[in-house]
């Protein structure tokens, strides 16, 4: 007992000493971590910069002057982008058949449809369900919800092959709808939305009901405006998930249905091509196009994304 007790004088002495040392010591720690983080960030950001500058380097420069990364020998050019987006071959490249298969405009539209359409539809469906699970009383509600939550243990791989054949049997295997509809049953987003809805005071909903509001009116006049933030974050993650997904579009559409490919599937094909031809510049341009929407979104809503990410860890 006595060993751990400190007297007031001891404590005051300790504080003084600490305050005396604090400025110097803490500053050293801060400066060291600043320098280290700065170096680390420069290293970790450099691939972005190489990719960005590489995409503006002309075809001949890429082959003849590969070391001039940031100042291309004959200046910056849009050759790579023209080749990708308009199929315009630069001079001196000869006949490259592979470029004819690069339907990057179509892939871009497919990816947008899948990511934006899928996210909006999921938000609607999931928030309706979360509302029902939170504010409407019906028999077996909690049992049903517990069963749905328990299903989170089962990983997506267990259902994906069955889903692939389901989609085929429903005649959706050559339709873009197959990219978004199977995602509507996703549990995690619905669970997060419901956790937020639970924090809305029940009295508010009760008094609205007293005033004769119907459930729909409560949903879009009270609950949705309050849940704007969480829906927005959920939407961001949904968009990024849909945009970055590679496995499911690959399972849906085979090698021949290039019109149905998403940007990710198409980009994997472009990268594979660039290993056997000298088209790495084109692949870099494709990478920039592929990255840009996500990057812009991250820069704009960086706070929200990091916040959403953090809260998932605190709650979990």
């Amino acid at each position: 007992m006595a060993r751990n007790q400190i007297t007031l004088e001891q404590y005051i002495g300790f504080r003084k000493k600490k305050e005396f040392n604090e400025k110097r010591k803490v500053n050293i720690g801060k400066i060291a971590s600043f320098v280290f983080l700065l170096l680390f960030c420069i290293m970790w950001i450099s691939p972005f910069i190489i990719m960005f500058f590489g995409s503006f380097r002309g075809f001949t420069d890429t082959i003849l002057y590969p070391k001039e990364l940031f100042y291309p020998h004959s200046g910056y050019t849009l050759e790579n982008y023209e080749m990708l987006l308009m199929g315009k071959l630069p001079e001196g490249i000869g006949q490259v058949n592979a470029v004819q298969d690069y339907k990057i405009g179509t892939w871009l539209l497919n990816s947008c449809f899948s990511a934006i359409g899928g996210t909006l539809l999921y938000l609607l469906v999931a928030s309706l369900a979360a509302y029902a699970f939170t504010f409407i009383d019906f028999r077996y509600r909690d049992l049903l919800f517990a069963a749905i939550i328990a299903s989170m243990v089962i990983p997506g791989a267990a259902t994906s092959v069955g889903n692939q054949s389901m989609v085929y049997s429903m005649g959706l295997n050559r339709s873009l709808l197959a990219l978004i509809i199977p995602g509507l049953g996703g549990v995690y987003g619905m669970y997060l939305i419901k956790t937020f809805f639970e924090s809305i005071p029940k009295d508010l909903i009760e008094s609205a009901k007293m005033d004769g509001y119907s459930n729909f009116k409560i949903f879009y006049k009270i609950v949705l405006p309050l849940g704007k933030n969480v829906l927005f974050v959920q939407g961001l993650f949904g968009f990024m998930g849909g945009w970055n997904d590679l496995i499911w579009p690959q399972m849906l559409y085979g090698a021949k249905d290039t019109d149905l490919w998403t940007l990710q599937v198409g980009m994997a094909y472009i990268i594979n091509n660039s290993k056997t031809s000298n088209l790495i510049g084109t692949a870099l341009a494709g990478g920039v196009i592929c990255l840009l929407p996500v990057l812009v979104m991250y820069i704009i809503a960086q706070d929200k994304i990091i916040e959403g990410m953090s809260s998932s860890g605190i709650k979990g």
């Binding site: 691939p47 990268i271 592929c290």
Partner: peptide, 10 residues
Amino acid sequence: IVPLTAAGTI
């Protein structure tokens, strides 16, 4: 946040 394929090009 970078898509796999974009990172793959680099």
